[in-house]
Design a protein around this nucleic acid. Sequence first.
DNA 1: CTGAAAGCGCTTACAG
DNA 2: CTGAAAGCGCTTACAG
Lengths: 319, 319
Amino acid sequence: MSISTASKALNNTGRMGEKTRERVKRAATEIGFRPNALARGLLSNRTFTIGLLTNDTYGRFTLPVMAGITEALVDHGVSVFLCTIEDDPALGKVHVDAMLDKHVDGIIASGKRIDRRLPVDLSNLPVPVIYAFTEGAPGSVTFCADDYQGAALAVEWLQGLGRQRIAHVTGPESFVSVRERARAYHDLAGGGELPVMYGTWSEAWGHEAVAQLWASSGEKPDAIFCGNDQIARAVVDALRERGVRVPDDVSVVGFDNWEIVAAQTRPPLTTVDMNLKALGREAGLTVLALAEGRDVEPGIRTLPCELIVRQSCGGNPDR
Amino acid sequence: MSISTASKALNNTGRMGEKTRERVKRAATEIGFRPNALARGLLSNRTFTIGLLTNDTYGRFTLPVMAGITEALVDHGVSVFLCTIEDDPALGKVHVDAMLDKHVDGIIASGKRIDRRLPVDLSNLPVPVIYAFTEGAPGSVTFCADDYQGAALAVEWLQGLGRQRIAHVTGPESFVSVRERARAYHDLAGGGELPVMYGTWSEAWGHEAVAQLWASSGEKPDAIFCGNDQIARAVVDALRERGVRVPDDVSVVGFDNWEIVAAQTRPPLTTVDMNLKALGREAGLTVLALAEGRDVEPGIRTLPCELIVRQSCGGNPDR
DNA sequence: CTGAAAGCGCTTACAG
DNA sequence: CTGAAAGCGCTTACAG
């Protein structure tokens, strides 16, 4: 029994008696043999390792993406290096170089908004790079959530509940996500449209917006579509503080499905989920395809959002 | 010029003319030569790679730990595999095996509480394992925050502000962290001690606790020390809703310094920070030491907490 | 059907 | 002071 025969037996390559192959395999499991991935990688140029780069320190967006990647790739035996680069390009380069030295099969760049680049140059790398929830280089593959469709889901849900005057309280207009969501609001709100209220991604802004809305004379909104869950939470709190009942008087819908805030709000938030985990799964499968030399069409892939129904809108939570 | 000479030049080993060495180095940088870490690892049995295992899905505790590890080890050229295992032992084993196949230099196990084990057996691994913010195997090295000292910091701060009747609203008594913090409260609160209020780690409990406290006849507390920031936030909200002013009438202090809630609370929370990043740094340096064969004393290392002063207690935030 | 040989990209004794 | 050789743990043509 030579070492090369053993290798072939375990890899189901070469030609040999079925019994020999079986015998080898049994022996291998018995002694708990595990091939050295380094030695393998040296030959095959595949390390079953990918790098995930992000500047999202809190992991709000990156962790779900990461979970999706891991889930999709663990069956393929790939492990993922995570590294959070702040906005320091030098540090970013150090990390990328470290990954390259370790011959990752590919890199996934991720972030916290789809219209900003990571502070590091990922073009002309010797490994495939794909982008998820961050702006990609031209000609690259980028995955992102469909903000327009997600916002449409929210507005249509409110309308289906019979709401007529829907306000939109959101983040800074400089975010494309904000503009896309506002566009959907504009396209769908029809007669009930109010001026979009742009602000910051903070609870303070949610309180302020409600104050403005209720300060003005005239008819009050019967629904508020918020640009994220933090704003939505503050809006719900502000309404409660003025004695406005949610969802009886006003329905509120959020965006992000950030469990930790959406589920703790009183009442819990109905909100749009960007399916970041699915996005991570797709991204993972795609780098893998690229790493294996398969052809992948470049461009921006937009994944659909989903509405998570809780109690802040009324309607049936058991839909 | 042989290939071995080049190797020696770049590694500052062997004996050769300084000029030769320089010439080699210059050439190397010119052509952008980067040694293949796999080939190196095959020889040296060091991959400059470590694994971080956690069951903390939201990353609340793991991300700061991870940031510390990365910060401490990037200079040493090590990258870290992150993998989040839910409570699935089978999946955990798959991930650990994947790391072992890749010959990580060591593994850091992390979690969300110091009195629970990860659902995976990490003893008798061929690589060093250390524990951070999760229960370790007997005889291992474990890092955790000093709950007693952190709680003492909070209580003493309230007392320094002249508070006399300090309540303690916290999580489930089944957590050792909860018991340690309550012990510090008990030891220090002296005359102002009230019965410790155990509950869940939710905002709902914070509201409920305030309701109970204000429902009972007799003197009300002038300070509330909360078991975490979520409870503290709810306590602040609940007090505001009843017209009790924070911090004028009642001081509130939290625990965790979870930016996203502590900073968004109105007023922002004074809270105890467990220094998880420092903990990660220590843990990283320690696996590295172990990986390099240096001796490390086993046992539990307790790192001190720090009080982050914001506005929920009064006092001078610019201390 | 099986084994000896070469080689992946490095490093490290060892001989000159 | 420098280079040829062996070897880390595997896989893959290739010869038998």
